[in-house]
Amino acid sequence: MRVIGQSQQAERALTALLSAFAFILVAMGFFAFIGEPPFQTLLAMVTYAVGDSYSLSESLVKTTPILFCALAAIIPARLGLISVGAEGQLYIGALVGTFVMLLAVPYGGWLLMPGILIGGAVGGAIWGWLPGVLRARFQVNETITTLLLNYIAVLLVSAAVYGPWKDLANLGWPATIAFPDASVLPFMFGTRVHAGLLIAVVAALSLQVLFRYSRWGQGLDVLKGNARVGRMMGLDFQRQAIIVMAFGGVFAGLAGITEASAIQGRLQPGISVGYGLTGFLVAWLAGHNALLAIPVSFLIGGLIAAGDTLQLFNKIPASSAIVLQGLLFATALAVPGLIRLWRARRG
Protein backbone atom coordinates (compact mmCIF):
# COMPACT_ATOMS: atom_id res chain seq x y z
CA MET A 1 0.00 0.00 0.00
CA ARG A 2 1.22 3.42 -0.87
CA VAL A 3 1.60 5.93 1.92
CA ILE A 4 0.89 9.49 0.96
CA GLY A 5 3.12 11.97 2.73
CA GLN A 6 1.80 15.15 4.22
CA SER A 7 3.56 17.40 1.74
CA GLN A 8 2.07 15.40 -1.11
CA GLN A 9 -1.38 15.86 0.37
CA ALA A 10 -0.86 19.60 0.69
CA GLU A 11 0.35 19.64 -2.91
CA ARG A 12 -2.82 17.91 -4.06
CA ALA A 13 -5.02 20.29 -2.10
CA LEU A 14 -3.22 23.27 -3.65
CA THR A 15 -3.67 21.84 -7.16
CA ALA A 16 -7.36 21.18 -6.53
CA LEU A 17 -7.90 24.69 -5.16
CA LEU A 18 -6.12 26.36 -8.07
CA SER A 19 -8.02 24.15 -10.53
CA ALA A 20 -11.35 25.15 -8.99
CA PHE A 21 -10.37 28.81 -9.12
CA ALA A 22 -9.19 28.53 -12.73
CA PHE A 23 -12.39 26.73 -13.71
CA ILE A 24 -14.54 29.52 -12.24
CA LEU A 25 -12.61 32.03 -14.35
CA VAL A 26 -12.90 29.86 -17.47
CA ALA A 27 -16.65 29.32 -16.88
CA MET A 28 -17.19 33.07 -16.49
CA GLY A 29 -15.23 33.57 -19.70
CA PHE A 30 -17.57 31.15 -21.46
CA PHE A 31 -20.66 32.97 -20.16
CA ALA A 32 -19.23 36.28 -21.33
CA PHE A 33 -18.49 34.71 -24.73
CA ILE A 34 -22.12 33.63 -25.19
CA GLY A 35 -23.28 37.10 -24.17
CA GLU A 36 -24.57 36.34 -20.68
CA PRO A 37 -23.61 38.31 -17.57
CA PRO A 38 -20.77 36.11 -16.24
CA PHE A 39 -21.10 36.62 -12.51
CA GLN A 40 -24.90 36.56 -12.34
CA THR A 41 -25.08 33.42 -14.51
CA LEU A 42 -22.55 31.65 -12.32
CA LEU A 43 -24.50 32.63 -9.22
CA ALA A 44 -27.73 31.48 -10.86
CA MET A 45 -26.14 28.08 -11.55
CA VAL A 46 -25.13 27.66 -7.92
CA THR A 47 -28.66 28.59 -6.84
CA TYR A 48 -30.18 26.17 -9.35
CA ALA A 49 -27.89 23.39 -8.10
CA VAL A 50 -28.26 23.69 -4.33
CA GLY A 51 -30.46 26.75 -3.69
CA ASP A 52 -33.55 25.02 -2.32
CA SER A 53 -34.70 21.52 -1.44
CA TYR A 54 -36.11 20.88 -4.92
CA SER A 55 -32.90 21.93 -6.70
CA LEU A 56 -30.88 19.89 -4.26
CA SER A 57 -33.00 16.79 -4.89
CA GLU A 58 -32.65 17.20 -8.68
CA SER A 59 -28.87 17.47 -8.27
CA LEU A 60 -28.94 14.23 -6.26
CA VAL A 61 -31.03 12.58 -9.02
CA LYS A 62 -28.18 13.33 -11.46
CA THR A 63 -25.52 12.35 -8.93
CA THR A 64 -26.70 8.72 -8.79
CA PRO A 65 -25.91 7.55 -12.36
CA ILE A 66 -22.78 9.71 -12.46
CA LEU A 67 -21.37 8.10 -9.32
CA PHE A 68 -22.19 4.62 -10.63
CA CYS A 69 -20.45 5.41 -13.94
CA ALA A 70 -17.48 6.92 -12.12
CA LEU A 71 -17.03 3.62 -10.25
CA ALA A 72 -17.17 1.82 -13.61
CA ALA A 73 -14.14 3.87 -14.70
CA ILE A 74 -12.34 3.82 -11.33
CA ILE A 75 -12.20 0.03 -10.87
CA PRO A 76 -10.38 -0.65 -14.19
CA ALA A 77 -8.18 2.38 -13.53
CA ARG A 78 -6.89 0.71 -10.35
CA LEU A 79 -5.19 -1.74 -12.71
CA GLY A 80 -4.13 1.04 -15.05
CA LEU A 81 -6.82 0.36 -17.65
CA ILE A 82 -8.59 3.29 -19.30
CA SER A 83 -12.19 2.22 -19.77
CA VAL A 84 -14.54 4.71 -21.39
CA GLY A 85 -17.26 2.09 -21.68
CA ALA A 86 -19.65 3.11 -18.90
CA GLU A 87 -22.15 4.59 -21.36
CA GLY A 88 -22.51 1.30 -23.24
CA GLN A 89 -22.56 -0.74 -20.03
CA LEU A 90 -25.31 1.54 -18.75
CA TYR A 91 -27.42 0.87 -21.84
CA ILE A 92 -26.87 -2.90 -21.82
CA GLY A 93 -27.63 -2.96 -18.08
CA ALA A 94 -30.92 -1.22 -18.77
CA LEU A 95 -31.57 -3.61 -21.66
CA VAL A 96 -30.99 -6.83 -19.69
CA GLY A 97 -32.76 -5.50 -16.59
CA THR A 98 -35.78 -4.58 -18.70
CA PHE A 99 -35.70 -8.03 -20.29
CA VAL A 100 -35.97 -9.55 -16.80
CA MET A 101 -38.89 -7.23 -16.06
CA LEU A 102 -40.70 -8.23 -19.26
CA LEU A 103 -40.23 -11.92 -18.47
CA ALA A 104 -41.20 -11.66 -14.82
CA VAL A 105 -44.08 -9.20 -14.96
CA PRO A 106 -46.81 -11.88 -15.25
CA TYR A 107 -45.56 -13.51 -12.05
CA GLY A 108 -45.09 -10.32 -10.04
CA GLY A 109 -43.96 -10.83 -6.47
CA TRP A 110 -41.20 -9.44 -4.33
CA LEU A 111 -38.49 -10.99 -6.53
CA LEU A 112 -39.18 -8.45 -9.27
CA MET A 113 -37.05 -5.64 -7.86
CA PRO A 114 -33.93 -7.66 -7.03
CA GLY A 115 -34.45 -9.48 -10.33
CA ILE A 116 -34.21 -6.39 -12.50
CA LEU A 117 -31.29 -5.02 -10.47
CA ILE A 118 -29.38 -8.27 -10.93
CA GLY A 119 -30.30 -8.18 -14.61
CA GLY A 120 -28.88 -4.66 -14.86
CA ALA A 121 -25.70 -5.66 -13.06
CA VAL A 122 -25.22 -8.73 -15.26
CA GLY A 123 -25.85 -6.73 -18.44
CA GLY A 124 -23.27 -4.11 -17.49
CA ALA A 125 -20.82 -6.81 -16.46
CA ILE A 126 -21.11 -8.55 -19.84
CA TRP A 127 -20.43 -5.27 -21.67
CA GLY A 128 -17.34 -4.75 -19.49
CA TRP A 129 -16.22 -8.38 -19.65
CA LEU A 130 -16.03 -8.27 -23.46
CA PRO A 131 -13.36 -5.55 -23.78
CA GLY A 132 -11.70 -7.09 -20.70
CA VAL A 133 -11.27 -10.42 -22.48
CA LEU A 134 -10.08 -8.70 -25.66
CA ARG A 135 -7.49 -6.85 -23.61
CA ALA A 136 -6.41 -9.90 -21.63
CA ARG A 137 -6.22 -12.39 -24.52
CA PHE A 138 -5.16 -10.25 -27.47
CA GLN A 139 -3.81 -7.02 -25.92
CA VAL A 140 -6.48 -5.06 -27.80
CA ASN A 141 -6.48 -1.51 -26.42
CA GLU A 142 -9.49 -1.25 -24.12
CA THR A 143 -10.00 2.48 -24.65
CA ILE A 144 -10.81 2.02 -28.34
CA THR A 145 -12.97 -1.09 -27.89
CA THR A 146 -15.03 0.43 -25.07
CA LEU A 147 -15.63 3.58 -27.12
CA LEU A 148 -16.90 1.55 -30.10
CA LEU A 149 -19.00 -0.76 -27.91
CA ASN A 150 -20.82 2.31 -26.54
CA TYR A 151 -22.35 3.05 -29.92
CA ILE A 152 -23.38 -0.58 -30.41
CA ALA A 153 -25.11 -0.65 -27.01
CA VAL A 154 -27.11 2.52 -27.67
CA LEU A 155 -28.29 1.12 -31.02
CA LEU A 156 -29.22 -2.25 -29.48
CA VAL A 157 -31.53 -0.45 -27.04
CA SER A 158 -33.03 1.55 -29.93
CA ALA A 159 -33.58 -1.66 -31.91
CA ALA A 160 -35.42 -3.21 -28.94
CA VAL A 161 -37.69 -0.28 -28.11
CA TYR A 162 -38.48 0.65 -31.72
CA GLY A 163 -39.02 -3.01 -32.49
CA PRO A 164 -40.25 -6.03 -30.53
CA TRP A 165 -40.45 -4.35 -27.12
CA LYS A 166 -42.46 -1.31 -28.23
CA ASP A 167 -45.64 -0.94 -26.21
CA LEU A 168 -48.43 -0.27 -28.71
CA ALA A 169 -50.33 1.65 -26.02
CA ASN A 170 -47.65 4.36 -26.35
CA LEU A 171 -49.18 5.50 -29.66
CA GLY A 172 -45.98 5.16 -31.64
CA TRP A 173 -43.62 6.48 -28.98
CA PRO A 174 -40.67 4.08 -28.86
CA ALA A 175 -40.76 2.73 -25.30
CA THR A 176 -41.50 -0.47 -23.45
CA ILE A 177 -44.38 -0.99 -21.04
CA ALA A 178 -43.98 0.84 -17.73
CA PHE A 179 -42.03 -0.78 -14.91
CA PRO A 180 -44.60 -2.01 -12.36
CA ASP A 181 -44.38 -0.30 -8.97
CA ALA A 182 -43.17 -3.50 -7.33
CA SER A 183 -40.02 -3.40 -9.48
CA VAL A 184 -39.05 0.19 -8.74
CA LEU A 185 -36.65 1.13 -5.95
CA PRO A 186 -38.24 3.20 -3.17
CA PHE A 187 -38.02 6.97 -3.46
CA MET A 188 -36.65 9.08 -0.63
CA PHE A 189 -38.04 12.21 1.05
CA GLY A 190 -40.95 12.36 -1.39
CA THR A 191 -38.61 13.40 -4.23
CA ARG A 192 -37.31 11.72 -7.42
CA VAL A 193 -34.19 10.66 -5.50
CA HIS A 194 -34.33 6.86 -5.32
CA ALA A 195 -32.52 4.30 -3.21
CA GLY A 196 -30.02 3.79 -6.03
CA LEU A 197 -28.14 6.76 -4.57
CA LEU A 198 -27.67 4.82 -1.33
CA ILE A 199 -26.48 1.76 -3.25
CA ALA A 200 -23.98 3.91 -5.15
CA VAL A 201 -22.63 5.61 -2.02
CA VAL A 202 -22.33 2.32 -0.10
CA ALA A 203 -20.60 0.79 -3.14
CA ALA A 204 -18.13 3.67 -3.31
CA LEU A 205 -17.32 3.40 0.40
CA SER A 206 -16.93 -0.40 0.20
CA LEU A 207 -14.70 -0.13 -2.84
CA GLN A 208 -12.52 2.41 -1.06
CA VAL A 209 -12.05 -0.08 1.80
CA LEU A 210 -11.41 -2.94 -0.67
CA PHE A 211 -8.82 -0.92 -2.61
CA ARG A 212 -6.95 0.12 0.51
CA TYR A 213 -7.14 -2.83 2.83
CA SER A 214 -7.91 -6.04 0.91
CA ARG A 215 -5.30 -8.33 -0.63
CA TRP A 216 -7.12 -7.85 -3.93
CA GLY A 217 -6.80 -4.07 -3.82
CA GLN A 218 -3.13 -4.23 -2.89
CA GLY A 219 -2.56 -6.77 -5.64
CA LEU A 220 -4.04 -4.33 -8.15
CA ASP A 221 -1.66 -1.62 -6.91
CA VAL A 222 1.32 -3.92 -7.42
CA LEU A 223 0.18 -5.00 -10.89
CA LYS A 224 -0.48 -1.41 -11.92
CA GLY A 225 2.94 -0.32 -10.70
CA ASN A 226 4.86 -3.19 -12.27
CA ALA A 227 3.26 -6.17 -13.98
CA ARG A 228 6.51 -8.17 -13.83
CA VAL A 229 6.82 -7.82 -10.06
CA GLY A 230 3.15 -8.75 -9.81
CA ARG A 231 3.73 -11.93 -11.79
CA MET A 232 6.61 -12.89 -9.51
CA MET A 233 4.22 -12.48 -6.59
CA GLY A 234 1.79 -14.86 -8.28
CA LEU A 235 -0.60 -12.18 -9.52
CA ASP A 236 -2.20 -12.58 -12.92
CA PHE A 237 -2.66 -9.36 -14.91
CA GLN A 238 -4.79 -11.02 -17.60
CA ARG A 239 -7.22 -12.47 -15.05
CA GLN A 240 -7.45 -9.20 -13.16
CA ALA A 241 -8.03 -7.24 -16.39
CA ILE A 242 -11.15 -9.31 -17.06
CA ILE A 243 -12.29 -9.04 -13.43
CA VAL A 244 -11.92 -5.25 -13.10
CA MET A 245 -13.61 -4.58 -16.44
CA ALA A 246 -16.60 -6.82 -15.66
CA PHE A 247 -16.80 -5.62 -12.06
CA GLY A 248 -16.77 -1.99 -13.19
CA GLY A 249 -19.52 -2.81 -15.68
CA VAL A 250 -21.75 -4.01 -12.83
CA PHE A 251 -22.07 -0.47 -11.49
CA ALA A 252 -22.70 1.21 -14.86
CA GLY A 253 -25.32 -1.48 -15.46
CA LEU A 254 -26.99 -0.55 -12.18
CA ALA A 255 -27.01 3.07 -13.31
CA GLY A 256 -28.82 2.02 -16.48
CA ILE A 257 -31.51 -0.12 -14.90
CA THR A 258 -32.24 2.35 -12.07
CA GLU A 259 -32.48 5.25 -14.56
CA ALA A 260 -34.89 3.25 -16.74
CA SER A 261 -37.06 1.92 -13.90
CA ALA A 262 -37.08 4.72 -11.34
CA ILE A 263 -36.46 7.92 -13.34
CA GLN A 264 -37.89 7.25 -16.81
CA GLY A 265 -40.36 4.57 -15.72
CA ARG A 266 -39.78 2.58 -18.92
CA LEU A 267 -36.97 1.67 -21.28
CA GLN A 268 -36.71 4.24 -24.07
CA PRO A 269 -33.92 5.77 -26.19
CA GLY A 270 -31.88 8.48 -24.52
CA ILE A 271 -31.96 7.07 -20.97
CA SER A 272 -28.52 8.58 -20.46
CA VAL A 273 -27.44 12.12 -21.25
CA GLY A 274 -23.78 11.23 -21.49
CA TYR A 275 -23.53 9.94 -17.91
CA GLY A 276 -20.85 7.47 -19.00
CA LEU A 277 -18.44 10.13 -20.21
CA THR A 278 -19.31 12.35 -17.25
CA GLY A 279 -18.52 9.44 -14.93
CA PHE A 280 -15.13 9.10 -16.62
CA LEU A 281 -14.48 12.79 -15.98
CA VAL A 282 -15.47 12.38 -12.32
CA ALA A 283 -13.19 9.35 -11.94
CA TRP A 284 -10.33 11.39 -13.36
CA LEU A 285 -10.98 14.47 -11.21
CA ALA A 286 -11.20 12.25 -8.11
CA GLY A 287 -7.80 10.79 -8.91
CA HIS A 288 -9.46 7.34 -9.21
CA ASN A 289 -10.28 7.50 -5.51
CA ALA A 290 -13.71 5.96 -4.86
CA LEU A 291 -14.31 8.04 -1.73
CA LEU A 292 -13.53 11.36 -3.45
CA ALA A 293 -15.78 10.32 -6.33
CA ILE A 294 -18.82 10.84 -4.09
CA PRO A 295 -18.48 14.62 -3.59
CA VAL A 296 -17.17 15.15 -7.12
CA SER A 297 -20.20 13.30 -8.55
CA PHE A 298 -22.44 15.58 -6.56
CA LEU A 299 -20.65 18.68 -7.89
CA ILE A 300 -21.00 17.57 -11.50
CA GLY A 301 -24.55 16.33 -10.89
CA GLY A 302 -25.35 19.81 -9.63
CA LEU A 303 -23.72 21.34 -12.70
CA ILE A 304 -25.90 19.24 -15.03
CA ALA A 305 -29.09 19.84 -13.04
CA ALA A 306 -28.35 23.58 -13.02
CA GLY A 307 -27.83 23.42 -16.79
CA ASP A 308 -31.36 22.05 -17.19
CA THR A 309 -32.85 24.82 -15.03
CA LEU A 310 -30.77 27.43 -16.84
CA GLN A 311 -32.42 26.32 -20.08
CA LEU A 312 -35.87 26.57 -18.48
CA PHE A 313 -35.54 30.02 -16.91
CA ASN A 314 -32.66 31.80 -18.65
CA LYS A 315 -33.11 30.36 -22.17
CA ILE A 316 -29.50 29.17 -22.25
CA PRO A 317 -29.36 25.75 -24.00
CA ALA A 318 -28.70 22.87 -21.60
CA SER A 319 -25.75 21.84 -23.76
CA SER A 320 -23.87 24.62 -21.96
CA ALA A 321 -23.43 22.01 -19.18
CA ILE A 322 -21.51 19.77 -21.64
CA VAL A 323 -19.25 22.68 -22.65
CA LEU A 324 -18.60 23.44 -18.99
CA GLN A 325 -17.75 19.79 -18.28
CA GLY A 326 -15.28 19.80 -21.15
CA LEU A 327 -13.75 23.07 -19.94
CA LEU A 328 -13.54 21.67 -16.39
CA PHE A 329 -11.73 18.59 -17.70
CA ALA A 330 -9.33 20.72 -19.74
CA THR A 331 -8.70 23.04 -16.78
CA ALA A 332 -8.01 20.14 -14.42
CA LEU A 333 -5.53 18.73 -16.93
CA ALA A 334 -3.87 22.08 -17.53
CA VAL A 335 -3.35 23.32 -13.96
CA PRO A 336 -0.76 20.73 -12.79
CA GLY A 337 1.27 21.42 -15.94
CA LEU A 338 0.99 25.18 -15.41
CA ILE A 339 2.20 24.84 -11.82
CA ARG A 340 5.16 22.77 -13.05
CA LEU A 341 6.02 25.34 -15.70
CA TRP A 342 5.75 28.19 -13.23
CA ARG A 343 8.07 26.41 -10.77
CA ALA A 344 10.59 25.58 -13.48
CA ARG A 345 10.67 29.21 -14.54
CA ARG A 346 11.36 30.32 -10.98
CA GLY A 347 14.18 27.83 -10.92
Partner: peptide
Protein backbone atom coordinates in the same frame (compact mmCIF):
# COMPACT_ATOMS: atom_id res chain seq x y z
CA UNK B 1 2.69 22.33 -23.88
CA UNK B 2 1.66 21.12 -20.44
CA UNK B 3 2.44 17.40 -20.59
CA UNK B 4 -1.12 16.33 -19.79
CA UNK B 5 -2.31 12.76 -20.32
CA UNK B 6 -3.21 12.29 -24.00
CA UNK B 7 -6.29 10.14 -23.40
CA UNK B 8 -7.68 12.59 -20.86
CA UNK B 9 -6.95 15.61 -23.02
CA UNK B 10 -8.55 13.97 -26.05
CA UNK B 11 -11.74 13.26 -24.13
CA UNK B 12 -11.81 16.83 -22.81
CA UNK B 13 -11.52 18.15 -26.37
CA UNK B 14 -14.26 15.75 -27.47
CA UNK B 15 -16.57 17.05 -24.71
CA UNK B 16 -15.86 20.68 -25.62
CA UNK B 17 -16.54 19.97 -29.29
CA UNK B 18 -19.73 18.09 -28.50
CA UNK B 19 -20.99 20.83 -26.20
CA UNK B 20 -20.09 23.78 -28.41
CA UNK B 21 -21.61 22.26 -31.55
CA UNK B 22 -24.83 21.35 -29.71
CA UNK B 23 -24.90 24.87 -28.31
Amino acid sequence: GLGANQFGSGLAVWMIGLGITSF
